[in-house]
Design a binder for these strands. Structure first.
Lengths: 213, 213
DNA sequence: ATTATCTATAGATCTATAGATAATGC
DNA sequence: ATTATCTATAGATCTATAGATAATGC
């Protein structure tokens, strides 16, 4: 949490972090027009400080989405380090992310409400998924010659899953995530049997530490 | 275009329609905060008239998205009337919609920029796709026992495709749409061979009449 | 006579900054 | 001495409406 640098820089980082966290809540609540004064009040930061860190609300919100994606990506990496099969890494990452929609509803609302950013972003989830898909294709596990096209299906489906789980609060998130992951794996070239086997393996779900770095 | 009713009602409908069309352009341009005055100016309508039709900008924008989805759905229905196999209706609808991202960039930007609405909407594309998927499952063509979950994959993928085509203007839209559709069909239970056969059939692409009703 | 539209604007809201205050560095 | 933060607010912007005008109904 406490970044390097001297005390002054740490204080500055703390203020910036408070703004980003507050912004994530407003995004999660679907309030992309929240007045800057309200955001700074939620962050318990003086109005004027905002402009020490960001030039506009859009800039803050973009940083907030990027930060959420990045910490989610780091978290997934930490849970898949011991795996070597890229197909399994991909499957497990998707299954975990699906479960996070329930464990971290704020985070998932940020994702769902920033749709296109999730798909297009060069940070966070998308580049990791693209990396896994390319590696699995290289290894002959997937048949996905067009990584970008595969990403359209994968990232879009993730948004769809998030939307579904928010809409149906009583739905079993693990079952939905696993079934959807299996469908995606089949689409990416695995056999139905192998896809379902991969999606029935146990997964680690360590206490997520998704706070600001 | 000219709705029923007397002249007064037609005039009213014209004003409303002008506001909706203007709103769709602002949505397409990613300007969800456009001042109401700017919208009415774009619609060539007096500022005050806005409040004769809508209580807020959000209400107008919701109507604009719904209208875009509805006319797109009607268009797809008109092109698939002669088909009876629900799997083929679904495949053809998806392939056509993918191509429309190029033919109607404004429309596609509306879709992409209103992401969750597309997935959740009870009008337009989603209910039609759900209908086709359920029918194909009923007929033993698809293996998709959970229609809502299938919709998460289908609707999400459509968003992903739209995003991809906007991002890569030189990409072959027909090839991308067909390849993605095949992947989705495999995920929904068709064999790879049959999915690719379905996606290589010729499709009608009549001059789209997607204007306001 | 009725209904819809238009023009003009009061009042509310928000942004961005100036100037004062507090915290840290040296 | 320097840097970041805070408070307070001028000026810009926007919303929503009042009142006038134009179009249609009968």
């Amino acid at each position: 949490m406490t970044t390097a640098g001297n005390r002054l820089e740490r204080r500055k980082a703390r203020t910036r972090s408070a703004l980003i966290t507050a912004a994530q809540r407003f995004i999660a609540d679907g309030k992309p027009n929240a007045p800057i004064l309200e955001i700074t009040q939620a962050a318990d930061v003086g109005m004027g400080s905002f402009y020490n860190h960001f030039d506009s609300r859009d800039e803050l919100f973009a940083a907030a989405v990027e930060s959420a994606l990045e910490s989610l990506g780091d978290y997934l990496d930490s849970l898949t380090v011991e795996l070597s099969d890229p197909a399994e890494i991909f499957a497990q990452s998707f299954r975990i992310t699906g479960r996070l929609f329930r464990l971290q509803p704020d985070l998932s609302r940020v994702l769902v409400n920033s749709g296109p950013s999730l798909i297009a972003s060069t940070k966070g989830l998308a580049p990791r998924a693209a990396r896994d898909i390319a590696a699995a294709t290289e290894a002959g596990r997937f048949v996905a010659p067009d990584t970008d096209l595969a990403m359209a299906l994968v990232a879009g489906s993730l948004l769809g899953l998030g939307q579904l789980l928010l809409q149906q609060p009583d739905r079993d998130d693990a079952a939905a995530a696993d079934a959807l992951t299996a469908g995606i794996l089949v689409s990416l070239g695995l056999s139905r049997a192998e896809a379902e086997e991969l999606c029935s393996r146990p997964i680690p779900l360590g206490a997520a530490d998704l706070d600001q770095p």
